[in-house]
Design a protein around this nucleic acid. Structure first.
Lengths: 193, 193
DNA sequence: CAGCCAACCGAATGATCGGTCGGTTTTTTG
DNA sequence: CAAAAAACCGACCGATCATTCGGTTGGCTG
C-alpha cells in the first residue's frame, strides 16, 4: 500500500504541475523510489494511473463540498451561494494540485474518447453546478435571490469564480486581491432586478 | 514562404488541439509535406516554432480588437463593454485555435522560465484588460457604469467571459445558450449600486 | 513449516522523439 | 547568365519513452 500511495501522490503532483505527456514514468520511479515494474503492477498503464488520480480528485472535491454543506448551516439562499464560493476559493488554495489538474486541457481531451474520464469530469462539474444551483433556488424561494434561470446563473457564476481561480494560478497578474470585487459582483448578479 | 506558412498553420492547429509535447515534428512533416530538415531550417527548434505561433496569436487577437474598437463607434461606456464582450465571444468562435492555445496550461508554464513567452502572454492579457477597463472608465465618466475599481472589475468581467468561452470548448455542457444570462450578469455588475 | 500470492524489483525492448547534416533544388541578385 | 543565397530534402543519430518479463521478497494462511 505504501508504494502505491506514494506513486499516486507523486503522479498527482507531476501530472498537475507538468502535464500528462510531460511526466515520464522514469521520473516517477526516481521520486517515489519504486521500480518501473512496481508502477505497472499497480496500474495497467499510464492512462490507468491518470484515471485513478482523476477519480481521487473527483471524490476529494465533491466530498469536501458535501461536508461543507452539512456543517456550514446557512440561513438563506444568498448566504449559501456566497459561502460556497468562498469555500471554493479556499479549497482551490488548499488542494492546488487537484484544481490545477482540472484546469489543464488534457483531461477534457481524453474525455472525448474515454467515457470513464468523461464521467469523472461530468461528475465534478455537474456536482459543483448542482450546489451553486441549489443555493440559488433556495434564495429564490426565501426572497434573497432574484434571477431568471437558476441553472444558467449557476453556470455563469461558476465560470466567473473558476475563471478567477485559473487566472490566479497563472501569476500573470495578482488576482489575490480580487476577492472583494468578486464577491460584490456575485451579490449584484444574484440580487438586483 | 509557402512551406513556412504551411508549417505555421499546421503547427498552430496541432499545438492548440493536441498540445505541445503531444505534437511531434514527424506529424508536422506528414501534414505539411515539408521535410524534417525544412522545419528546422525555418525555426531554430520546437520551442522557437511555438513562440512564433504565440506571437501570431497575440498580434492577431490584439489587432482584431484594435480594428473593432475603431469601427464600432459606441456612444457610451456600458455599450462599449458589452460590445467588446460580444466581440470576444464571436472572435473565440472564429479563431478557435488561437483561443484554445491560450486556454492550455503549457504556455503559462513555459512563461515561468521563458521571458519572451511571458511577454507575449502578458501583452495579450494586459491588452484585453485595458480594453475592458477603458470601457468601464468611460462608463463611469458618462454615468452609464457604477463600480468602485475599474481595473478589478475588468479582471472579474474578463474571468467570467473567458471562463464561459473555456467551458464552452470542453463540451461537457452546452454553454452556447448562455449568452443572454452572461450579458445580463455583466449589466448587473456594471450598473447597480 | 509449506505453500501461496501480492508487492516489488530492474534490466531489457522496440518505438518514437527532437534535432543534425551534407547535399540538391529553387530563387534572388548583380 | 553566373553566382550567391535561401529553401528544401531525407537519411541518420543518440536519447528517452512506455511497457514487459523473469525473478525475488515478505507476510499471511492452513
Amino acid at each position: 500500500m505504501s508504494k502505491k500511495n506514494a506513486i499516486l501522490a507523486a503522479a498527482t503532483h507531476l501530472f498537475s504541475r507538468n502535464g500528462f505527456k510531460e511526466t515520464s514514468m522514469s521520473e516517477l520511479t526516481r521520486i517515489t523510489g519504486a521500480a518501473g515494474g512496481t508502477i505497472f503492477h499497480h496500474f495497467k498503464n499510464k492512462e490507468d494511473l491518470f484515471l485513478n488520480i482523476l477519480k481521487n480528485v473527483q471524490e476529494t472535491i465533491l466530498s469536501a463540498f458535501r461536508e461543507h454543506k452539512e456543517t456550514a448551516g446557512y440561513k438563506n439562499g444568498i448566504e449559501m451561494v456566497e459561502g460556497v464560493i468562498t469555500f471554493y476559493l479556499d479549497l482551490a488554495g488548499v488542494i492546488e494540485d487537484q484544481f490545477l489538474l482540472l484546469h489543464r486541457h488534457y483531461p477534457y481531451q481524453m474525455a472525448e474518447t474515454n467515457t470513464v474520464c468523461r464521467s469523472y469530469l461530468e461528475s465534478v462539474h455537474n456536482g459543483l453546478l448542482d450546489i451553486f444551483e441549489e443555493g440559488i433556488s433556495i434564495g429564490i424561494e426565501d426572497g434573497s435571490v432574484k434571477v431568471k434561470s437558476p441553472r444558467n446563473t449557476a453556470m455563469v457564476l461558476f465560470a466567473m469564480v473558476d475563471g478567477v481561480v485559473r487566472l490566479n494560478t497563472y501569476n500573470l497578474y495578482h488576482a489575490g486581491s480580487l476577492y472583494n470585487d468578486l464577491m460584490a459582483s456575485c451579490r449584484k448578479i444574484l440580487t438586483n432586478e
